[in-house]
């Protein structure tokens, strides 16, 4: 399991757990306004890194897109480094 980021305001906490399929969970304080956008950023970033199997949890405290992407990229880099 990989955890990146924080639960501070304007940040998000990304968790990656090995899984047999692709599962994306988003929990955001701005879900009504930006939920779709957050999901889009996560899917796009995963696709670019060729991740097709993993359980991704995003706990969002109002992070902007660049932060969500950066936290996820960091998590993916660590995930791949650890040989999942």
């Amino acid at each position: 399991m990989i955890i990146v980021g924080t639960l501070e305001s304007s940040d998000c906490l990304i968790t990656i757990i090995p899984a047999e399929t692709l599962i994306i969970e988003v929990d955001s304080i701005v879900y009504d306004a930006f939920g779709q956008q957050i999901c889009h950023v996560i899917k796009h970033t995963l696709a670019k890194a060729n991740i097709t199997k993993a359980h991704i949890i995003c706990q969002d405290k109002g992070a902007l897109d660049y932060t969500i992407k950066a936290r996820l990229e960091t998590a993916i880099a660590r995930y791949q480094e650890e040989g999942f």
Binding site: V4, G5, Y66, T67, A70, R71, E73, T74, A77
Partner: peptide, 10 residues
């Protein structure tokens, strides 16, 4: 690594 990815994306 978090700082590098975050700053680069920003």
């Amino acid at each position: 690594d978090e700082a590098r990815f975050l700053t680069r994306n920003f």
